[in-house]
C-alpha cells in the first residue's frame, strides 16, 4: 500500500456536511468488477452536466482551473457517510486525492481510507474554514502541508494539530497490508477459534 508521510497539495473545498458515498461515486459509475477505472466517476453527479454524461460542469470546484490538480479535499462533518462502498475511496485515490480534511467521517469510510492509503484527517470546523479561506485567496500557491508522523497541518503560517488512532497512523505511515499484519497473529487466532468451537458448539 502507498505510504503516507508528508503531503503538500492543492486543497479543494466542498464545504458541506454529510457528503455521502453515493455522491462521491454514484452507483451507476461502478460498472465493473474492479477497483480500477473509478476516478472518472468521482463526484459524477456534480462534476458533469448530465447524469451519465461527461460534459463537465464548470461550476463544480474540481473543474475550476484554480483548483486543478487538487490532491486534498476540505469538507464538512460526517464525510463519507452512507453506503459502505469502498469504491468511494478507490475513486478518490485514482483521481489523485491523498487526504480528506473534515470535522468527522463516516466510520466505514474512514476505515476504507486507511486500508487504501488515503488519510481521513479530522480538524475542527473553524480550522477547516480558516484553511479554506486562505486557500481560496490563491489555491495553486496556498497549499496546505500535511505531516502525518507529526500529526499536523500547516497552512497560512499556522500549525493545526490533529488526532489519529495509533493503529491507523502506523498503517498509513508504513503502508502496511492489514491482512498480512494480522496473519502474524495466527497462532492466537487459531487458538481462539478452537476454544470458541468448544465453548459455543452450536455456532459451528
Amino acid at each position: 500500500m502507498e505510504k503516507f508521510e508528508q503531503h503538500e497539495g492543492v486543497a479543494a473545498p466542498i464545504l458541506r456536511g454529510n457528503v455521502d458515498t453515493d455522491a462521491i461515486i454514484p452507483s451507476r459509475e461502478m460498472k465493473r468488477v474492479s477497483k480500477l477505472g473509478l476516478g472518472e466517476g468521482l463526484f459524477a453527479g456534480w462534476r458533469y452536466r448530465e447524469i451519465g454524461g461527461r460534459e463537465v460542469n464548470p461550476d463544480f470546484v474540481l473543474n475550476r482551473p484554480e483548483y486543478a490538480g487538487a490532491s486534498i479535499l476540505l469538507s464538512g462533518s460526517n464525510f463519507g457517510c452512507g453506503s459502505s462502498r469502498e469504491h468511494a475511496v478507490w475513486a478518490l485515490k485514482e483521481y489523485g486525492i491523498r487526504a480528506v480534511i473534515a470535522p468527522s467521517f463516516g466510520a466505514i469510510f474512514a476505515n476504507n481510507c486507511i486500508r487504501n492509503g488515503l488519510l481521513p484527517l479530522e480538524l475542527a470546523e473553524q480550522a477547516i474554514a480558516a484553511i479554506a479561506a486562505w486557500v481560496a485567496e490563491a489555491p495553486q500557491a496556498n497549499q496546505p502541508l500535511i505531516d502525518l508522523p507529526g500529526q499536523s497541518v500547516e497552512a497560512n503560517g499556522q500549525r493545526y494539530v490533529f488526532d489519529i488512532e495509533a493503529g491507523a497512523k502506523r498503517m498509513l505511515v508504513e503502508g502496511l497490508d492489514a491482512i498480512a499484519l494480522t496473519q502474524t497473529h495466527w497462532p492466537v487466532i487459531e487458538q481462539f477459534h478452537e476454544q470458541r468451537k468448544h465453548k459455543y458448539p452450536w455456532v459451528y
Binding site: 477497483k35 459502505s84 462502498r85 469502498e86 475511496v89 466505514i108 469510510f109 476505515n111 476504507n112 486500508r115 487504501n116 492489514a178 491482512i179 494480522t182 496473519q183 497473529h185 495466527w186 487466532i189 477459534h193
Partner: peptide
C-alpha cells in the same frame, strides 16, 4: 457493515 478490503480481511483471518 464493512468495506471490501475489510471483507477480504475477515474472509482470510476470520477476524
Amino acid at each position: 457493515g464493512i468495506g471490501s478490503s475489510e471483507a477480504e480481511h475477515a474472509l482470510v483471518t476470520k477476524t
